[in-house]
């Protein structure tokens, strides 16, 4: 009851300044819109760990020094970085998805949803950007440090796990946070294949209500807020992990 009154108050107050938020008082459209916000947040929360895990994996391949590992990953990274995400998404959804459908015998058996493809494409796209940042960080680890680790008897994997990655991660953290902000923005491409994130939900509302400006104000505020939080958390992690005396 209290919640309902607050909504009504908001609607009538904004109505006085000429903004039309009347759909919030209706059940159906308000529900679509709320679900849009939730889907976008869900995408962001899911994509951050996915992109980080694959980014680390790609970076490990890139710096492995083995051509059969680094060359395919390098090719993937370059293609991903230099073609639009939307094109990658359409390609995956229209081509790869059709292959999978044919493989399992018909689209009705295909377990892969548009939501899956958004996570896969955006996640791997940002992972490629992470990989570049982490690779630069790994290459910036002083050779003497790596030699010292080898001298203690660490093998290649242990050096990566205990020496290179912790130092590289700290060095590349600003770039990674930047990529995560891009990630938040990229979730909107889901619109193209009917994933009901916030822009898709908003189109549903404004085609009925003709209140684009009102919805835009909220969407811009929403993305500014998420990105502010991501940037702040990034800064906090950066401070938390800072190694005293390690020149960064």
């Amino acid at each position: 009851m209290q919640d309902m009154n607050l909504t009504d108050l908001f609607v009538s107050l904004t109505d006085k300044v000429g903004l039309n938020y009347q759909f919030l008082a209706t059940g159906y459209e308000a529900q679509i819109w709320r679900d849009g916000f939730v889907t976008t947040l869900y995408l962001v929360v899911l994509l951050i760990p996915v992109s980080l895990i694959f980014g680390l994996l790609f970076a490990a391949c890139l710096t492995s020094g083995r051509l059969w590992l680094s060359a395919p990953v390098r090719a993937f990274v370059e293609i991903t970085r230099n073609t639009p995400t939307l094109v990658q998404l359409m390609f995956s959804f229209l081509v790869l998805n059709t292959f999978v459908s044919n493989l399992v015998g018909g689209a009705q058996n295909n377990p892969l949803t548009p939501f899956f493809w958004v996570v896969a494409v955006v996640g791997l796209h940002i992972a490629a950007l992470h990989a570049e940042a982490i690779r630069a960080g790994i290459e910036a680890v002083p050779a003497s440090t790596v030699e010292a680790a080898r001298g203690i008897g660490f093998n290649q994997l242990q050096i990566l796990r205990y020496v290179e990655v912790p130092l590289a991660f700290r060095a590349s953290l600003p770039a990674i946070v930047n990529n995560l902000i891009n990630l938040v923005k990229l979730t909107t491409v889901g619109n193209a294949i009917a994933v009901s994130e916030i822009t898709y939900a908003s189109i549903m509302v404004w085609t009925q209500r003709d209140n684009v400006v009102e919805l835009m104000i909220v969407i811009l505020a929403f993305f500014s807020l998420i990105n502010l939080i991501v940037a702040r958390v990034g800064l906090w992690v950066e401070r938390k992990l800072a190694v005293p005396g390690y020149g960064l």
Binding site: K185, L186, T187, T188, S202, I203, V212, M216, L220
Partner: peptide, 19 residues
């Protein structure tokens, strides 16, 4: 600068197209 640097390109294209 802060608002539009953080806004998705797609949202801004929608905004200009429909407004």
């Amino acid at each position: 600068v802060q608002i539009f640097r953080n806004a998705p390109h797609l949202v801004l294209i929608f905004a200009t197209t429909y407004i």
